[in-house]
Amino acid sequence: KELVLALYDYQEKSPREVTMKKGDILTLLNSTNKDWWKVEVNGRQGFVPAAYVKKL
């Protein structure tokens, strides 16, 4: 599985998104969309802005 690092805090704005804190390590589930990547964090799956994370 591929991991990404949260570069910034992000507060979810819809049920399809997830909240993350700067420094969190997230599991990358899908990065086919250039703007929104699907990740898993704390057992929850959802989208975060691709610009807010970096592949490890």
Rank of each mutant, 00 (worst) to 15 (best):
K1L: 15
K1W: 15
K1C: 08
K1H: 15
K1D: 11
E2D: 11
E2L: 11
E2K: 09
E2R: 11
E2M: 13
E2A: 10
E2V: 14
L3Y: 15
L3F: 15
L3P: 05
L3T: 11
L3I: 11
L3V: 09
L3R: 10
V4A: 14
V4Q: 01
V4R: 02
V4Y: 13
L5Q: 14
L5R: 08
L5C: 08
L5N: 02
L5S: 05
L5F: 09
L5W: 08
A6T: 03
A6F: 01
A6M: 02
A6V: 14
A6H: 01
A6I: 02
A6W: 02
A6E: 00
A6Y: 02
L7Y: 04
L7Q: 05
L7A: 04
L7I: 12
L7C: 06
L7P: 00
L7F: 04
L7H: 04
L7K: 06
Y8V: 14
Y8G: 06
Y8R: 15
Y8Q: 13
Y8M: 12
Y8A: 14
Y8K: 14
D9G: 06
D9C: 05
D9A: 07
D9E: 07
D9Y: 05
D9S: 09
D9I: 02
Y10G: 00
Y10H: 04
Y10I: 01
Y10P: 01
Y10D: 00
Y10T: 01
Y10W: 11
Y10L: 01
Q11W: 13
Q11G: 09
Q11C: 09
Q11E: 14
Q11V: 12
Q11P: 07
Q11R: 12
E12W: 06
E12P: 14
E12M: 12
E12R: 14
E12Y: 05
E12I: 07
K13Q: 14
K13H: 09
K13V: 10
K13I: 08
K13S: 13
K13L: 11
S14Y: 08
S14C: 07
S14P: 06
S14H: 15
S14G: 13
S14D: 13
P15Y: 11
P15F: 10
R16P: 06
R16Y: 15
R16T: 13
R16Q: 12
R16H: 15
R16C: 11
R16L: 15
E17F: 06
E17T: 09
E17L: 05
E17V: 05
E17C: 07
E17A: 06
E17R: 04
V18N: 05
V18H: 03
V18A: 06
V18S: 02
V18E: 01
V18T: 06
T19Y: 04
T19M: 04
T19I: 03
T19R: 05
T19A: 08
T19S: 13
T19N: 07
T19P: 08
M20I: 14
M20S: 01
M20V: 12
M20L: 11
M20H: 01
M20Y: 02
M20T: 04
M20R: 00
K21L: 09
K21P: 01
K21T: 11
K21N: 10
K21R: 12
K21E: 07
K21Y: 12
K22Q: 12
K22T: 08
K22H: 05
K22M: 10
G23C: 06
G23M: 03
G23E: 02
G23N: 07
G23F: 05
D24K: 03
D24E: 13
D24T: 08
D24A: 08
D24W: 12
D24H: 05
D24G: 04
D24R: 03
D24M: 13
D24V: 05
D24S: 08
I25H: 05
I25D: 01
I25L: 10
I25Q: 05
I25F: 07
I25N: 03
I25S: 03
I25W: 05
I25C: 05
I25G: 01
L26I: 08
L26Q: 01
L26E: 00
L26M: 15
L26H: 04
L26F: 07
L26N: 01
L26W: 02
T27K: 12
T27W: 13
T27P: 14
T27G: 07
T27N: 11
T27R: 15
L28M: 04
L28C: 06
L28K: 01
L28P: 00
L29D: 02
N30R: 06
N30I: 10
N30F: 08
N30V: 10
N30L: 10
N30Y: 08
N30C: 09
S31H: 10
S31Y: 08
S31F: 08
S31G: 12
S31K: 08
T32Q: 13
T32V: 11
T32Y: 11
T32C: 10
T32S: 12
N33W: 08
N33S: 11
N33H: 14
N33K: 07
N33D: 15
N33Y: 09
N33R: 10
N33E: 11
N33L: 10
K34C: 08
K34D: 13
K34E: 15
D35T: 15
D35I: 15
D35E: 14
D35F: 15
D35G: 11
D35Q: 12
D35M: 14
W36N: 02
W36I: 03
W36A: 02
W36T: 02
W36S: 03
W36M: 06
W36K: 02
W37V: 08
W37Q: 01
W37F: 08
K38M: 14
K38F: 15
K38S: 09
K38W: 15
K38Q: 15
K38P: 02
K38C: 10
K38N: 07
V39Y: 00
V39R: 00
V39D: 00
V39E: 00
V39P: 00
V39T: 01
V39L: 04
E40N: 05
E40C: 08
E40V: 08
V41H: 15
V41Y: 14
V41T: 13
V41D: 08
N42I: 07
N42V: 07
N42Y: 11
N42Q: 11
N42E: 10
N42T: 07
G43M: 06
G43S: 07
G43T: 06
G43H: 08
G43C: 08
G43W: 04
G43L: 06
G43K: 05
R44A: 07
R44S: 07
R44G: 04
R44I: 09
R44D: 04
R44F: 07
R44C: 06
R44K: 13
R44L: 09
R44N: 07
Q45S: 13
Q45H: 10
Q45Y: 12
Q45I: 12
Q45R: 12
Q45M: 14
Q45N: 09
G46L: 05
G46K: 02
G46P: 01
G46A: 04
G46R: 02
F47N: 04
F47D: 04
F47P: 01
F47E: 05
V48P: 00
V48D: 00
V48R: 01
V48W: 00
V48S: 00
V48T: 02
V48Y: 00
V48N: 00
P49E: 01
P49H: 02
P49C: 03
P49L: 03
P49I: 02
P49G: 01
P49W: 03
A50Q: 06
A50Y: 02
A51G: 11
A51P: 08
A51H: 12
A51E: 11
A51C: 09
A51V: 10
Y52D: 03
Y52M: 12
Y52A: 11
Y52V: 07
Y52P: 00
Y52G: 07
V53K: 00
V53D: 00
V53A: 03
V53L: 15
V53T: 05
V53G: 02
V53Y: 01
K54Y: 12
K54M: 15
K54A: 14
K54T: 13
K54G: 11
K54P: 01
K54H: 10
K54R: 15
K54S: 13
K54D: 08
K55W: 07
K55R: 12
K55H: 11
K55C: 07
K55P: 11
K55Y: 12
K55D: 05
L56S: 04
L56Q: 06
L56K: 04
L56N: 04
